[in-house]
């Protein structure tokens, strides 16, 4: 491990010597590789913004007897304002979800991107993910090397599917509550009670998961503490690529397609802006997490 890092450092330095003061490279001459497209980054931005809005207003409703909830509701204009913000964020997120589904459908049905459904670039879990989980746990206990992860790690796939199904479940139950009399025509009586439980509990899971596990795994990770901004800038350094997605990196090297992923160094303003946004989101999220957990266990 230490050797790997050292070698990478040396290669970077040598590259720096060749490249000189190329502004597309990092301060020590490292190359940058594209991880997320601009659209993916926008999608993430819309999602976490609406998610924070939904969480802040939803928790206020869920834990409405708490003083903080009542003060917050009062501050932004009472229940009417809370529900308005909640629905606004929900509708925005619904459109994003529908856009994403449409995008996937187009790519699979019309562009025939088979890799989207199965394979190393797919979000669909496969046997390799199971091996990675086992390998990672072996590594945690010092029983084996750190597994080389592909394009999407199993915890990233979990993030994706948790949000995907979460949006379907929370979204559907939310719309049932919103248009109760309409859904009351087709759904059995108990379903109207059930959607409320499902909506609240699934949302609690999403909130506690995102604000603890996702934050730590994807943004506050120890190898890039205190803020990994890849999802904001879209780019990661060659070292980060090798370290985090070694399997994909080596595959690209073998296939001679690594250069396809090359991108320029993100501008300083974007890096700073990303940090600001990231820290703000993390701060809000952690505050909500503390309130949620304390209110949940006081119930």
């Amino acid at each position: 491990m230490a050797d790997q890092t050292k070698t990478a450092g040396v290669s970077s330095l040598s590259h720096h010597a060749v490249a000189g003061q190329d502004s597309t490279l990092g301060p020590t001459g490292e190359r940058y590789f594209m991880r997320f497209t601009l659209m993916q980054r926008y999608m993430h931005a819309i999602m976490f913004t609406t998610f924070l809005g939904l969480a802040a207003t939803g928790l206020t409703i869920r834990f409405s007897t708490n003083a903080w909830a009542q003060h917050f509701a009062f501050a932004i204009g009472g229940f009417g304002a809370i529900l308005f913000v909640h629905k606004l964020c929900a509708v925005t997120l619904t459109f994003e979800f529908l856009y994403h589904v449409k995008d996937i459908a187009v790519r699979i049905l019309f562009r025939k991107e088979k890799g989207l459904l199965w394979g190393p670039s797919s979000m669909v879990p496969n046997l390799q993910d199971l091996k990675d989980i086992i390998g990672n746990f072996r590594w945690f206990f010092g029983l084996g090397p750190k597994p080389e992860i592909g394009r999407y790690a199993y915890w990233e796939k979990f993030d994706y599917w948790a949000v995907f199904w979460g949006m379907i479940i929370i979204g559907f139950s939310g719309y049932v509550m919103w248009f109760g009399p309409f859904f009351g025509r087709f759904l059995p009586g108990w379903a109207l009670n059930a959607v409320q439980i499902v909506h609240g509990e699934e949302a609690l899971l999403a909130i506690t998961f995102i604000f603890s596990i996702h934050f730590v795994n994807s943004h506050l990770r120890p190898d890039n503490f205190p803020m990994d901004t890849t999802i904001f800038t879209g780019a990661m350094t060659e070292d980060e690529f090798k370290e985090r997605h070694g399997h994909e990196y080596q595959k690209l090297v073998r296939e001679g397609r690594l250069e396809e992923k090359l991108t320029t160094r993100p501008p300083t303003w974007l890096v700073n802006f990303s940090r600001l946004v990231g820290f703000t989101a993390v701060f809000i999220g952690l505050a909500l997490l503390v309130l949620t957990v304390s209110a949940y266990f006081r119930e």
Binding site: N136, F137, F140, F141, W155, F158, A162, I197, V198, E201, E202, L204, L205, T208, F209, S212, I213, V216, N217, P222
Partner: peptide
């Protein structure tokens, strides 16, 4: 739902904690 929350959170809290250590 409660079992789902506790199951998911237990697994990933453990996973994250071990990873950090």
């Amino acid at each position: 739902m409660v079992l789902l929350i506790s199951g998911v959170m237990t697994f990933f809290l453990l996973h994250t904690l071990l990873w950090l250590i």
